[in-house]
Nucleic acid binder design. Sequence first.
DNA 1: TCTGTATTCAACAAATCAATTGAATAATAT
DNA 2: ATATTATTCAATTGATTTGTTGAATACAGA
Lengths: 218, 218
Amino acid sequence: MAGPKQTLLEQFAVLGKALSNAHRLDLLELIAQGERSVETLAEAAGLSIANASQHLQVLRRSGLVTSRKLGQQVLYRLSGDDVLSLLAALRQTAERHVAEVGRLVNGYFKEKDKMEPVTRNDLMRRMKEGLVTVLDIRPEQEFAAGHIPGSLNIPLKDLKKRLNALSPETEIVAYCRGPYCVLAYEAVAALRGQGRKALRLEDGFPEWRAAGLPVEKL
Amino acid sequence: MAGPKQTLLEQFAVLGKALSNAHRLDLLELIAQGERSVETLAEAAGLSIANASQHLQVLRRSGLVTSRKLGQQVLYRLSGDDVLSLLAALRQTAERHVAEVGRLVNGYFKEKDKMEPVTRNDLMRRMKEGLVTVLDIRPEQEFAAGHIPGSLNIPLKDLKKRLNALSPETEIVAYCRGPYCVLAYEAVAALRGQGRKALRLEDGFPEWRAAGLPVEKL
DNA sequence: TCTGTATTCAACAAATCAATTGAATAATAT
DNA sequence: ATATTATTCAATTGATTTGTTGAATACAGA
């Protein structure tokens, strides 16, 4: 009785179900930074290992992520860049049509950084001219898995003590995991509080890589 | 303890949850054809009225659709064209990364129509030259709510008896609800079986309208 | 006002999901 | 082999989702 249409809809629904839990969306954003093991993902997302493993298997069954075994670890990564497009579409729709999201984005996020973010191409241009210091605000591990070439990794918690290592003259552009990642917002706010000239990059590292721009690994 | 990030993820998850049920995805595609009442949506989707009403309320709470009261009916419609983009992203990701979907699309759907579908712009061009008959294969009600100007409404079930009303010379382009709507595929197959030259339009009516192309209403 | 109609609400059972716990598995190192 | 480590599986609990049924609401027309 189930025609091809019905079967297709059920498969699409499996994909929707993968996106229907906040922890899984959190894991997806972490995985988007680069391939990672179950244990480190569990820790970064604040989940027990068994629970993280189960969420990751839901994501794998949905097709959004794939996994491979390396030694005794299982590494998860995004199935492709179109997953980023799907997440972007989800965010855009939520921002436009979910009152609560619009409120948060226009309140918490926009307030922290009234200025337009720097676009990727803008940043590329300014980097070539050597006019700018690029800060990667993510944890070390994510920086190690891939970052913008020439960027300096200063995780948010270390920003205060390492601030004086930066020349006070040059402009600073900060980035982190994605469009709503709070790390870069906090960093820009902190830097401006110190009288620095600081801006935020649009989106985050996964989008930079997906745009085909150069990437460096440790 | 729930920071803004957590709240955002929970809201995104609400959107995902709306997409996590095959009946709701079915209803969404129907709503995308045009504003419709609960009763007609329930019938078209093969659901009881109470059940359809509940699914529709889930969709409304998620922000994907809105509703308004007209007389004693409640009419539901899409919140915006970005919902179509979200659905397209969902389909694309499923097609690329869910084995079962790839199998179905490359089997059932592609087989029925090996040729590339006609693009929207192509169809516009051919229509201007008067070289083509455009068939809308959807049920009357959906045709009435909006269709491609100059198209002829022949619901799939009426195709056989009304086939001879079409000039045997002109090429036929058929369309229906969307990229995986089976109606147009079946129609093209049936027409070709009768020795007609028939092609399928890419996607369906909602995408035509969202592209800003002209639309006619009864 | 009374009547019929469209939709929503409320209550229920069955199924599914989420998180925890502890055991099982698989690969590596000793 | 044995021990160690990373991950998955299985069993359990409580919460959520789904679909059904029948009642409640809201509204228009006679």
